[in-house]
Amino acid sequence: MISELRIVTGYRTGITFLQEGYYTRPFKLADIGAYRADKALCLMLMTASPGMLDGDDYRISVTVSKHTRLQLQTQAYQRLYSMQQGAKQHMNVQVQEGATFSYVPHPIVPHKDASFEGYNRIELAENCRLVWGEILTCGRKLNGEAFQFKQFHNVTELFYRGKLVLKDNLLIQPERINVMAPGQMEGYTHQATLIYADTRTGAAPVADRLLEILSPEKDIAYGVSQTAGPALVLRVLGHGAEQLFNCLRKIEDLLWKEEIVEAQYKL
């Protein structure tokens, strides 16, 4: 089933609002920031489906208009059920001049025989910021389904000034590749990725602070890489989805609070 979601933000007197919100089944949108002091738009992406089913085709478009700030959250873990043909998702994001977009969804849980292909295209303008997260689990580990999915393939491309500055290509095929081998998961079962981009001042000054946030955590491995453009990538390996999700949310909260302070200062 083809399912569509389209979000366009608007700006009026310092307040970000939902200018356009269109969705088909099973998507739903909820404004969860109506009573916050923050004048940004905070939306929760919900779905009436328990997860992605065989043949599902999600098409998502997000336009963060000039000078607006959008934080998009999810309602629950994203489950990928057993499939024959597979499911796919295409997400197109435009962060316009002076805008900020933050998206750290819940972890993805591929069930046995699940197959998924995703593509994310993100275009950045001048003077904007992006926080983008992804967490992949090994599946239902307590049910004995660790790495029993067929395939998980997700590509994220980041463009700035019309040029590709980052391409993250995550492909896991447990039947063909030993995920525990050196250079792969190396004994860990969960993986988190955080992309941070800042076309105002660059992302490099944030790297040390990300490492400080993660330093108290136990039983994880992590590292930060600088991209060719104004962005960096944080990769974290661990054994628990909730731990990795909490780590990314801590980082998101830190960066978002800075956005609030800057926005209030401008007003």
Rank of each mutant, 00 (worst) to 15 (best):
R121A: 08
A228Y: 12
I220G: 04
L130S: 10
P50K: 12
L29A: 02
L248G: 07
Y265V: 07
L53Y: 02
K39A: 07
E212R: 08
R36E: 15
C42T: 10
Q264G: 03
A203K: 10
M185V: 10
L237R: 11
P205E: 06
G223K: 02
F17P: 13
T74N: 15
G144D: 00
P26N: 04
K167W: 07
A34D: 00
F152H: 11
T63A: 14
Q71V: 08
E258D: 15
V261R: 09
V233Q: 07
Q73R: 14
K257A: 06
R25Y: 01
E212T: 11
Y58V: 13
P105V: 09
V224N: 00
R249N: 14
K257P: 00
Y81H: 14
L80T: 09
L53P: 00
I213R: 10
C42W: 07
E212M: 08
Q96R: 15
H190C: 06
A30M: 07
N169G: 00
Q191T: 12
E186A: 07
V93G: 06
R235W: 04
N169P: 02
K250H: 08
H106V: 03
F116D: 03
P107G: 11
D54L: 14
A37Q: 03
V104S: 03
D56Q: 05
I2Q: 11
N169T: 09
T189S: 09
V165L: 12
A30F: 08
V95N: 05
A181L: 02
E126Q: 09
Q71H: 00
G118Q: 06
F17E: 09
L210Q: 01
G202N: 13
I172W: 10
R36S: 13
C128N: 03
L70I: 13
I32D: 05
L18C: 06
L45D: 00
T156V: 11
N154F: 07
G55Y: 14
H153K: 15
N120I: 15
L130A: 15
S61G: 05
I15A: 03
E242A: 13
G223M: 00
P216T: 12
A221H: 02
P26A: 04
E175I: 08
G223N: 04
R129W: 05
P182M: 14
T201M: 15
K163C: 04
R25M: 00
V8L: 05
Y11T: 00
Q151H: 12
T100M: 06
I195C: 01
Y160I: 10
K218C: 10
T47W: 00
G10W: 03
A87G: 02
I60T: 12
